Simulated scan of single mutants.
Amino acid sequence: MTARNELRLLPWSGPEGKPCYLSTDHRDGHMSRLADNIEAVQLGMAAELLEQALEVLGDEDADLGELRPLATKLTEALRDVIRVATSRGHLLAVSEPDRS
């Protein structure tokens, strides 16, 4: 198994919103691939949501009632993207050779 400092932050939360981590020696194992696929979906959804947000914000005649649900969805997408970035940044740091 991986050392504690090599745990992968997964793209979903556990009970009570606590982060979930994966400890494995197999980056191509089932759970790693599942996490990769979910991250890809989350990033794709965030990109689509950004396009929608740009359209709504660019439309001066847009209904103000659209902004609250849009802000909620953007907040959720941003949370997911930050989790992906944190996980991938950690994975990059762990895989880089020690330069000391």
Rank of each mutant, 00 (worst) to 15 (best):
D59A: 12
V84N: 00
L7H: 01
P19Y: 13
S87H: 04
D61Q: 14
H30Y: 08
D59P: 10
L43Y: 03
A71D: 06
N37C: 06
L7R: 01
T72K: 05
T72F: 04
L43C: 07
L64F: 15
A93D: 08
L43H: 01
T2Q: 01
A93N: 09
G44D: 08
R68W: 14
I38D: 03
S23L: 05
G58Y: 12
R4W: 05
K73D: 03
A47Y: 14
L49H: 02
E66P: 02
L22S: 00
V41W: 13
P15A: 13
L70N: 03
G65N: 15
V56G: 07
L7E: 00
W12V: 10
Q52P: 01
T75Q: 10
L54G: 14
E16I: 11
A46G: 03
R8N: 00
M1R: 05
G58Q: 09
I82R: 14
Q52A: 06
A3R: 04
R68A: 15
L7G: 03
D25P: 00
L92G: 06
V94W: 08
A85P: 02
A77W: 11
R99A: 10
D36E: 12
I38E: 02
L67C: 11
L91S: 04
R4S: 06
S13Q: 10
M45K: 14
R68H: 11
A77T: 10
H26G: 09
R33F: 05
G17Y: 10
S95D: 12
I38G: 00
T72S: 05
L67D: 02
A46S: 13
D63T: 02
H30D: 06
Q42V: 04
R79N: 13
P11V: 02
L78Y: 12
D28K: 06
R79P: 02
M45A: 08
E48I: 02
S87D: 01
L78V: 10
D63M: 09
P15M: 05
R99P: 01
L9E: 08
A53D: 01
H30E: 09
P69T: 06
E6Q: 12
R83Y: 04
S87I: 02
L10Y: 04
D80C: 11
